[in-house]
Simulated scan of single mutants.
Amino acid sequence: MTAIPLSVLDLAPIPAGGTTRQALHNTLDLAWRAEEFGYHRYWLAEHHLAPGVASAAPQILIALVARATSRIRVGSGAVQTGHWTPLAIVEQFGTIDALYPGRIDLGLGRSGQRRAEFARGAAAPPEREATVVDGLLIPKPFDVGRLAGSPVIALFGELLQQPGAESPDFAEQVAEISALLDGSYRSPDGHRAHVTPGEGADLQLWILGSSGGESARVAGERGLPFAANYHVAPSNVLEAVDAYRAAFKPSGVLDEPYVVVSADVVVAPSDDDARELAAPYPLWVHSIRSGLRAIPFPAPEEAAAHAWSDEGWALVADRVDTQFVGSPQTVVEGLRVLQRVTGADELLVTTITHDHAHRVRSYELLAGEWNRA
């Protein structure tokens, strides 16, 4: 099987006992190393009010990472459009592109809008048991409805949006962003707008999605590349890529669909070593699923001392069971399955360990084995 590109998704994680300052320096170091290891792009996520994640202002981090590197593409995975106006997004990324032209990806997601949907009460997921498709685990869907009514969701709304503000339809936002970038924007009453910086920026526009819903449809209908989240919503990955491909229409950007699929990965010299490094991951996921706030990533000894209840484990099982953990050979074998089953054109790897050196080594080992396989 031909080796497709590997890319990096970074949250700028803060380890237990660590600091925000060190986490941000770690991101710059990892980006530089990822470029040397041969990764294709380096994306920063957008997370807010999370004591264990320093990537709250990805636009700033993207500019810093672009400055610290020279070749690797750098971008957002993804801008939460529910928190920003199209004009603000275009101006921010237009500014970065003016300084680092031809290297910047603008990834857009519905995360900010979906929180409002959760607050109103999300629909229960379809009744579907876990299955294995040609060797790839598709777990039972996680019920996001249990997040509905969370006071944390209400707090997000209070702090991330102006009072009374409502995000427009996602498709409309994407259309506005595209029009502002290419200079074709007209207001409903016919007035034109020209954005400086922003108009004419050499940005690669992406849509990220966790289901076969609006994000996949918008990406397909506009002929844009699409990133599907196996690491966040593994139960929906096949639905997402199928919906995107079904909706795809050739555009000035793409003649054919282009799919990136994300994966949560920990690589070490041996399977046992990797399992030890990945042991804190369930506790970290539990903090997100139970309280919507990622905690500082625990140390392995903290994870070893934790006693799990059946209810607690049910909150994290789908994410843990679909994490790729092991030696380089073990993980590459699993990622090849993910590539084959989803038809991915590129894989987006996210790795979190308590120790930064282990995280860097994980990416190094993976890249080396991937390029040999």
Results as ranks from 00 to 15, higher is better:
170 F>V: 01
170 F>A: 00
170 F>H: 04
170 F>T: 01
170 F>M: 03
170 F>P: 07
171 A>L: 09
172 E>M: 12
173 Q>A: 09
174 V>T: 00
174 V>I: 09
174 V>E: 00
175 A>L: 10
175 A>E: 09
175 A>I: 14
175 A>H: 11
176 E>C: 13
176 E>W: 13
177 I>H: 05
177 I>S: 01
177 I>E: 00
177 I>G: 00
178 S>D: 10
178 S>M: 12
179 A>D: 01
179 A>H: 07
179 A>G: 01
180 L>F: 06
180 L>R: 05
180 L>G: 00
181 L>E: 01
181 L>Q: 04
182 D>Q: 05
182 D>L: 04
183 G>H: 06
184 S>F: 13
185 Y>N: 00
185 Y>F: 09
186 R>H: 11
186 R>M: 06
186 R>G: 02
186 R>A: 05
187 S>F: 08
187 S>T: 07
188 P>I: 04
188 P>R: 12
189 D>V: 15
189 D>C: 15
189 D>T: 15
190 G>T: 03
190 G>E: 01
190 G>I: 07
191 H>W: 15
191 H>E: 07
191 H>T: 14
191 H>C: 14
192 R>H: 06
192 R>F: 11
193 A>I: 11
193 A>D: 11
193 A>T: 14
194 H>V: 12
194 H>I: 15
194 H>M: 09
195 V>R: 07
195 V>E: 00
196 T>A: 10
196 T>E: 08
196 T>Y: 14
197 P>V: 10
197 P>N: 06
198 G>E: 02
198 G>P: 11
199 E>T: 07
199 E>F: 12
199 E>V: 08
199 E>Y: 13
